[in-house]
């Protein structure tokens, strides 16, 4: 994995920066020492381009997801990738050194360093030791840090317990993060989360506030009376994106036809959902684009 990541970094990074990194990795492989590691980890910002984004071709993507399903470096900047490469060397230093150094790093990390550390989690050993760090990390007020833990990564899906998972999904909705980029929404769905999401929707409705249609995706396997009545309300919304959520559940997650009475309200979206033109991913992408456009 480390070699592949270095190869990707080389697509864009200055040769001088890559040389510096490779020299450091070679030194650390001969004999690991904490202080030079700290200097290198923070010093990435002195060698790589602050604004440069890495480029990833199809072959790279395939190699990464073959090695670690769900792992991707798409849209990463050079700082993030270079630091994850360094962390993979740290991970070879034995459990005690690894965890002690990782804790020191995380306790003194700036925003971009935190992003890099959490991004590396799917690649690191001892996930049971990493879970509390990731859970603490989701309490952040800083979007980039939250995103590094929750979005486009298989770590929470594989390692969070239900409590951690549910808190993360609720917070992602609460702070308007694009839920379709959370991996494992279907496999990790649970009744407790579905009920909490329904309650969140009710609070929002009471306050006259927006409820993302992505919220209902985690409720799909749990068509309780309350959730069916919630979906009836969503089906009556004039916004086609709201109707889309009902259509997606009716098309894919309703073998007992509990939503039969709502199908007419969302007929057009239902056609799209059945034909596959509309999926939770296409809906999520549309919502994300709209949110970014509105903010800009």
């Amino acid at each position: 994995m480390q070699e592949k990541l270095l190869e990707i970094l080389k697509h864009t990074a200055e040769a001088e920066a890559v040389d510096w990194l490779e020299n450091h990795l070679a030194q650390q492989k001969e004999g690991f020492a904490q202080r030079p590691f700290y200097y290198a980890f923070s010093g990435v910002s002195r060698h790589f381009d602050k604004q440069s984004t890495v480029t990833v071709n199809t072959e790279d993507e395939e190699a990464l997801s073959k090695a670690t399903p769900g792992f991707s470096v798409a849209n990463w900047d050079e700082f993030r990738l270079a630091r994850v490469i360094l962390l993979l060397t740290l991970a070879e230093q034995g459990k005690d050194t690894f965890l002690e150094t990782l804790n020191a790093l995380i306790n003194t990390a700036d925003i971009r360093e935190q992003v890099a550390i959490f991004s590396a989690f799917p690649l690191l050993q001892y996930p049971e030791e990493l879970v509390p760090l990731a859970r603490e990390g989701t309490r952040t007020n800083i979007v980039d840090v939250f995103d590094a833990i929750a979005l486009d990564t298989p770590f929470p899906m594989r390692h969070f317990d239900d409590e951690g998972w549910n808190q993360m999904v609720l917070k992602a909705l609460f702070i308007s993060r694009p839920l379709y980029r959370v991996q494992g929404l279907e496999t990790r769905a649970n009744l407790k989360l579905a009920e909490a999401l329904s309650n969140l929707a009710h609070e929002r409705w009471a306050a006259g506030r927006y409820v993302s249609p992505e919220l209902w995706r985690s409720c799909a396997p749990f068509l309780t009376e309350q959730i069916i009545s919630d979906l009836a309300r969503v089906a009556e919304d004039e916004n086609p994106n709201q109707k889309a959520a009902v259509a997606l559940i009716a098309a894919n997650s309703d073998p007992d036809k509990k939503l039969a009475g709502l199908r007419d309200d969302v007929a057009s979206q239902l056609d799209d959902a059945i034909s596959g033109r509309l999926t939770w991913d296409t809906l999520g992408q549309d919502l994300e684009q709209a949110l970014l456009a509105a903010a800009a």
Binding site: R35, Y38, S42, S45, F79, T108, D110, R112
Partner: peptide, 10 residues
């Protein structure tokens, strides 16, 4: 502590 911070971005 200082060596952990002085090379950081910004």
């Amino acid at each position: 502590l200082l060596p952990l911070y002085i090379c950081k971005e910004g």
